[in-house]
Write a protein that binds this DNA or RNA. Structure first.
Ligand SMILES: [Zn+2]
Ligand SMILES: [Zn+2]
Ligand SMILES: [Zn+2]
Ligand SMILES: [Zn+2]
Lengths: 151, 151
DNA sequence: TGTCATTTGATACTCAGTTTCATCAATTGA
DNA sequence: TCAATTGATGAAACTGAGTATCAAATGACA
């Protein structure tokens, strides 16, 4: 079963209608290996209206098909979710996104439970990089570092 | 030197003018142990205009005085930065923020450098909790868990 | 094919944040 | 001490992202 099919399947299985707009949107977003913004889809998928694009993205996030990535500034990016639990490596120059998961980190975060009276409900990790492609294309690290220190 | 003094000092040292608006804003934001939104400051500090509040917050983020926390939805929250490098524990119910830092995690993230051709420029970790106070006040974990899985 | 709840989309709206620019105020230095 | 200079302010208008409305369209299923 292809990615496209599995996404459509999941919507069907959960009682959502398979409409022309939704199929067009799925077709478009699975092409974005490196993630996309809502407005990019609005522009690309002319068959679907603005409201429908936003509604469909939200639906797919709810269904676990898409990851929503809140950027430091600007609109969030979305990526098709691969691994069940994972985090993101984001290029600060081109915005491309890859997934990762480190058992050591997961364990360390898990052990934070019960350190105090709080109940941990989730966590999020983002690693910001200048990807190989952007560096090869001449993007410099230093100009970027300042605004992405995340210290 | 108090927190208030050290913030004002830093602005002075970096060549920014110590104006009435800035002092009023600093006075207000240091009172928010648990973080605040830009609009909260706009409401609270009537002596400063909307634009000035946003400009001042941005200035303080640039100076490392404030942390900007992009929420999953809604406006970002800001907190006064304590430790030099740290991450955040955020209550999904009341929005209160605490800092943490785990050497194990820092090391693991550091070791990701050079795994591939990317250059790591920073990282961000957020741990979402239902804080003890909210739980005591009757907030339930289950209703929250779904929308904050961050998987 | 008919039924009908779901979905759609044009439009208007909200909300967060930025730009503009005339005015104001902190610093400089004569 | 008092311009001159430059940085800072703020009302108001604007932008961009996303949401609400609601009549019309359309999938799903019998
Ligand atoms: Zn993801
Ligand atoms: Zn994790
Ligand atoms: Zn912080
Ligand atoms: Zn760290």
């Amino acid at each position: 079963m292809t990615l496209r099919e599995s996404i459509i399947q999941k919507l069907e299985d959960n009682g959502f209608r398979i409409t022309g707009s939704r199929v067009k949107l799925v077709d478009s977003l699975i092409k974005h290996e490196e993630g996309f913004t809502a407005e990019e889809l609005v522009t690309e998928v002319r068959e679907a209206g603005r409201a429908t694009v936003y509604r469909t993205i939200r639906l797919l996030v709810d269904q676990g098909v898409l990851c929503k990535l809140a950027m430091d500034s600007g609109a969030p990016r979305y990526t098709v979710s691969g691994m069940a639990h994972h985090h993101h490596i984001i290029c600060v120059h081109c915005g491309s996104v890859r997934e990762f998961r480190q058992t050591v980190i997961e364990r360390a975060l898990k052990s934070m439970e019960d350190d105090d009276g709080d109940t941990v409900v989730g966590h999020r990790i983002e690693v910001f990089v200048l990807c190989a492609a952007c560096r090869a294309a001449g993007a410099k690290v230093d100009s970027i570092r300042a605004e992405h220190q995340h210290s």
